[in-house]
Amino acid sequence: MKLACLSLFLVLWAAALPAHAATIYTADQLKLMIPLGHYPAEGPVAKRENQKMSWADCLTRSAEVVSSAVVSFPALRLVDTPKLRTTKIWTADASMTISCRVEGRMELSRSPYR
């Protein structure tokens, strides 16, 4: 149930953004590009959100989002330290970055492709 609610939140969150993306990639294109280090050019962050939550809850929610996204799109753990974990997911029209901070905060950002 938590995963369904969080997934619905992310879909609605992304849908509420204006569709400025000049470039769209298929999941297959991204799955070929990302492992080779060929990352789509990104514009500025179009949406940023901070949510207060415990470190443990953030790690759990982040893992749920990533595991549901990687069915279709690539993801990469960018930072994994005792105080910060950041994961990036590349979707068809933008990248999404999820960060968990030990201070008790989840940060979400979305950057459309150029």
Rank of each mutant, 00 (worst) to 15 (best):
Q29W: 03
L36C: 00
L36F: 01
F9T: 08
E42I: 07
E42F: 04
A41V: 09
A21N: 09
G37K: 03
T23M: 03
A15R: 04
A14Q: 03
L6V: 08
Q29I: 09
I34T: 03
E42S: 15
K31C: 09
A14P: 08
A41F: 15
L12W: 10
V11G: 14
A14W: 03
A22W: 03
A14K: 10
L10I: 14
Q29E: 13
L6S: 11
F9D: 02
A27Y: 15
L17I: 02
A22D: 14
L8F: 11
Q29L: 03
H20W: 12
L12F: 14
A22Y: 04
G43S: 07
G43P: 01
S7M: 14
A16K: 12
L6Q: 07
P35D: 01
L12P: 02
Q29D: 09
A22V: 11
A15L: 08
P40V: 00
K31F: 06
G37N: 01
A14I: 09
K31H: 11
I34Y: 00
A21E: 13
L32T: 04
L17H: 05
D28V: 04
V11A: 15
L17A: 15
A27P: 09
A41P: 14
A27K: 13
P35M: 01
P35N: 03
L8Y: 08
I24F: 14
G43A: 05
P18D: 10
G43V: 04
A14F: 08
P18R: 08
E42V: 13
V11I: 02
M33A: 03
L36T: 00
G43L: 02
Q29R: 08
V11L: 04
V11Q: 13
L8T: 14
L32D: 07
L32K: 05
A19S: 05
A41M: 13
A22L: 04
A16D: 12
L6I: 06
L12M: 05
G43I: 01
T23D: 04
G43N: 03
T23Y: 08
F9W: 09
L6A: 13
L36E: 02
Q29T: 11
T23I: 15
A41H: 15
A21G: 12
W13C: 13
L8D: 12
L36S: 05
A15H: 04
Y25A: 00
